[in-house]
Structure formats: structure tokens, C-alpha cells
Design a protein around this nucleic acid. Structure first.
Lengths: 291, 291
DNA sequence: TCATTTATCTGACTTAAGTCAGATAAATGA
DNA sequence: TCATTTATCTGACTTAAGTCAGATAAATGA
């Protein structure tokens, strides 16, 4: 029996909007109207092209111009013409602007911390928040190629190992598995992709090359909060594109029947089951795909 | 390994606020400023005391007065002095106002439906929304005494049976259990409490009386989305208060060791284990509490 | 009884946000 | 080359929201 979904969505909306004081990135308390604070924040976040900021905040050009002037008068930003198109302007923080932006960041972080501290079961709440954020912003998930020793990659891998440990009947110990050398997953031999959603790493895949025409797909993982969004498929296809760029002709992978949804994905996307091709203790099923 | 919770909360905030067009109960598209629409909505929702509306929407009295005038001029509401205090006023919808309020409701429902339809895995998303709404609004959960045959009570009971079926080794069939007569859970013999959070039933408990000094606690259930908020304890204590009002001196209950968190609650709140007092096939542990 | 408090209302403001027309200067493309 | 397009800016507005002081009438309580 399912309670009316429409009622549940509206209840969520009411809860979120009524707690807006705690949730909203509201730029109160620093004596500056919201509009100006939002522009300052965009610039601090790394956006510099005036037209891009205007677009992304949905501001009218007249309003945008005035907000920039007011931030300039406060000494927080400076604008210079774009050297490649003198009609356009580039905005950047001054030293004062940087410290003011930092103050907003500190305030936002503190607010998020207080918010969590006020709630029992913060871990449960966070998991739910992750699901909602990943789903709402699913069209803004970006795949970035990173060094497998990068912080975000290491986070994904550690989550991946934890998940294998909980799903394999006899657990999982990475030291018993053939852990690929990081250099085999960096160009020109291979690649390592991390899916980032609004700053949070939510998935990864490794392309482990050997220098030859055959490479392996390793470490395909999608965060529980981001499942069902088609992300695994996207990671695999992006890894295939990277493989083609590296002149790789044949891809192989090993997997375990304790991960049926992964096998289903491979079968549906042109992979064929082949004989065992290594003596790693964990996998029991092997696939190949010719590019 | 846990990713920085502060980053995750802020990511959620960005996602929710950037999707505000889909989420916010924004009163656009009916040619009326937000302030007036919010007041109309409050009145439509059943609030009538002007001061109460002002308080709950956080409006200044001057602003409130003007918003009421503008709604009156549109012919949507009428205000009359409160008969018990002629300084206060009571606002209510006119016929036109009722249909205009209905239009907002239809719009909000349609928007919620469209929102869900746009997302893959809506059930997963709804579960996460329930968790967040219950947690954010945990101080606004109300316990209401209802007829166990009421829609909300029936929903809670059906969820309760589903949960028992999944947690008991051999499933659960309510027809094999001693299902209490509804009249035994209605005053003056007993009571049935439903916990409502912003319109959604999220928990229940039954007090099954016999007309004598001994009564039973039955059907204690808390929705998965509302666990960890202390709701079970609150339901139990409220049931005890009802029992005292009905001159009940001894409470009994039966439970199953497949529900360890329930047993833990009973032991921590003054219940003592006793011998089996019925031949119901499901319970294996029995408790008593003297009031 | 009567000073004080309370709820609502009115007038006269301010502030933030936003709109619209038109100016200016640079880039674009037939 | 030169009409057209584009990005930004300025002036002159409007609208929504909100503030503050004071008025009015009813309720409250020593």
C-alpha cells in the first residue's frame, strides 16, 4: 500500500521551504542584499564571465550591471574587458572580496553543521539528501578523468571495496585481488573516470591499459544514492570512448555473480561472456567487448 | 569512509533551491503577488484567526492588513469581528475564494505529479523525501486518536502487517493472529492513536481494552522514514495516558524476538517480562506494566 | 472605574528587485 | 566595407515587500 505520492511530494516541499532559514544559502547577516551576495558568490565560486553569471543566475542585464557596480564600489570585485572580445567583461575578486567570500563560505558551512547537529540520525538524513540531490541534478553529473590516487578517486575506490566486502559471501580483501598499478589507469596507458555531482563523487570506472591493443575495465562503482540514473552505462560508454582514443581494440573485464545488476548491464551493452582469463580469487564471470 | 557531511548538506541545499521552480509552492501564474497568495492559501487551509495567520506567515500587522484588504477587494475573502473578542477578526473564503483556492490546489498537485514523472525511480525519491520531511518537521508530529477503521489507521495497520510479514521468519498472516475488534480500541473501552506528520500518517499504536482494569497494547508501528525520532516512545507514553484516563491499571503486550528494537524500548520504559498470556501463534515474548 | 494593553488599521515612508527603451562600443558576416 | 548583431551600461520607471509612527476601538486588570 503506497500513500498518495503527490501528497508526499507536497509535504516535502512544505518541510523544506518552512525550514528555509536553516537550509537556504541565504546571504543574510552581512549587510548586503541577496542579489549582490549571489553575484559575489558566483564570482568566488570561479565564474568570471559576466554574461555567464547573468545567465546562470537568471538576471536582467540592467540589474546585473548595477549589482556589479555596487560590488565594485564596495571594493570587493574588479571588472576588466575580456581580451578575446572587448564587448564582454570579466569579473574577479579583489583581496577584500576574497576575504568577504570566505566569510560567506564559513557562514554557510557553520550553518550546515548546526543544521545536522540539530537532527537525530544525521547519517540517515544525509543519505536521503544525497538521493534527492543526485536525482534532481542528474542532468548536471559530470565525468572527469582523474588520477586514481586523487582524493575523489580514493574515496570512490574505498566505497567500492566496502560494498564488495558486504556483498561477497566471503568478504573482500583488496590485497588478495590484482590491484591495478595507478600508472596503468592514467594516459597514455589507460584512464580513470570519476562521476561528480555538484562536488560529490558518486561513481567511477577504471580503464587499465597494458600499452597494447587489449585493456581491462576495472572498479566500476556507482554510489547507492545515484543508482537508477543510468550512470553506470554512461561511465562504461565514456571509458569505451577513452579506449578508442588510446587505440585499444579489445576490452575485457571480470566480475562476480554476486553483482547481478552489473552483469545485466554488460550483457545489454554488447559484452560477451568469455573464459576465465586470470586467476584472481574474486571474479567468477568474464566478459569481452571488441571496439 | 564518509564524505564531508557539510559538503553534502550544502549540495542538497543547492539542488533544492535551484529546482525551486518545480518544488516551491510558488503562487505564480494566477496574477497575484506571493504575499496575497500565501494568505489566501492559509485561509483556504482552514486558518481563520487573522492574528494566527500573521504569526504563522511571519507578517507585519500593517502588511497583513493590506493583504487582507486586497483579497477582500478581489472578492475572495470576507472578514468579520471575532464574536469573543471584537478587536480580533476572522477571515473566511467567499464562494469565489473557495474556487480560487481550489485552483491553487489543483496547480500544486499537478506540479507535484509532473515533478515525479520527470524522475526515474520515483519510489526511491519519495522515500528520501519522507525521511527529510519527517526529520525536519519532527517537532510538528501530532498524535491523533482515530477510529481504527479510519483511512489513516488502516494505512498504518497495512504497513505494519507488511513489515511483520517481511521480518518474521515464516511471514505473517493477520487472519491467524488475534485481530482486535475495532470497538475494543475506541473509547470508552480503548483507544487508537495515529501519528501524523504534515498530513502523512507515520505511526500508530492501539490500546485494546476489555472494560476491566487490564488492557493490551497492540499494533505499535513507526514508518521507516520516521525511525530514530523517539516516536515509538511518544506513542507508548500517550497510550499510557489514555489508559489512565480509562481507569486501566495493568497494561500487557506480546511481541516477537524478531523485533529487538521494540523489546529494547519496552525494557527501558518500565515494562517487565511475564509469562505467555495468550496462544497467538506469532508472539514469543510477553510484557506487563503496572500504571 | 480607568489606565494600560492588545489587535487592527492608515499614512507615509524605504528598500530590493525588476522592466523597458535607448545609448555605446565592439564583433560579425554578407 | 558596412549593416546587423551582441554585450554592457544608463535613465526612468514599476511592483512587491516591508517598516515605523500613530490612530482607533475593544479588552484587561489593579
Amino acid at each position: 500500500m503506497t500513500y498518495d505520492p503527490v501528497l508526499r511530494v507536497r509535504r516535502f516541499n512544505r518541510a523544506v521551504t518552512s525550514e528555509v532559514g536553516a537550509l537556504d544559502i541565504s546571504f543574510l547577516g552581512r549587510g548586503r542584499p541577496l542579489g549582490a551576495a549571489r553575484v559575489l558568490n558566483s564570482i568566488g565560486q570561479g565564474q568570471s564571465d559576466v554574461a555567464a553569471i547573468r545567465d546562470c543566475l537568471g538576471l536582467d542585464s540592467a540589474l546585473m550591471s548595477r549589482l556589479l557596480r555596487s560590488l565594485e564600489e564596495e571594493g570587493l570585485i574588479e571588472t576588466v574587458p575580456n581580451p578575446r572580445d572587448a564587448r564582454r567583461r570579466i569579473a574577479r575578486l579583489t583581496e577584500t572580496g576574497r576575504s568577504e567570500f570566505g566569510a560567506y563560505e564559513t557562514l554557510s558551512n557553520a550553518r550546515a553543521k548546526t543544521f545536522l547537529a540539530r537532527h537525530p540520525q544525521p547519517e540517515e538524513l544525509l543519505r536521503a539528501m544525497d538521493i534527492i540531490a543526485s536525482s534532481l541534478r542528474r542532468d548536471h553529473i559530470v565525468l572527469e578523468e582523474k588520477d586514481p590516487r586523487h582524493e575523489d578517486a580514493k574515496y570512490c575506490l574505498s566505497e567500492y571495496y566496502t560494498e564488495l566486502a558486504s556483498r561477497f559471501r566471503n568478504g573482500f580483501d583488496v590485497s588478495l585481488s590484482r590491484d591495478p598499478d595507478a600508472r596503468d589507469m592514467i594516459r597514455p596507458r589507460g584512464a580513470f573516470l570519476v562521476a561528480i555531482s555538484d562536488g560529490l563523487p558518486i561513481g567511477c570506472v577504471g580503464l587499465k591499459g597494458s600499452g597494447g591493443e587489449v585493456a581491462e575495465i576495472k572498479r566500476l562503482w556507482v554510489a547507492p544514492s545515484a543508482r537508477g540514473l543510468g550512470l553506470a552505462k554512461r561511465l562504461m560508454l565514456t571509458a569505451e570512448i577513452a579506449a578508442r582514443e588510446l587505440s585499444i581494440r579489445v576490452l575485457r573485464l571480470d566480475t562476480n555473480s554476486a553483482l547481478p545488476e552489473a552483469q545485466q548491464l554488460y550483457r545489454r551493452t554488447g559484452w560477451n561472456e568469455i573464459d576465465r582469463f586470470n586467476d584472481d580469487p574474486y571474479p567468477d564471470t568474464f566478459f569481452e567487448k571488441r571496439l
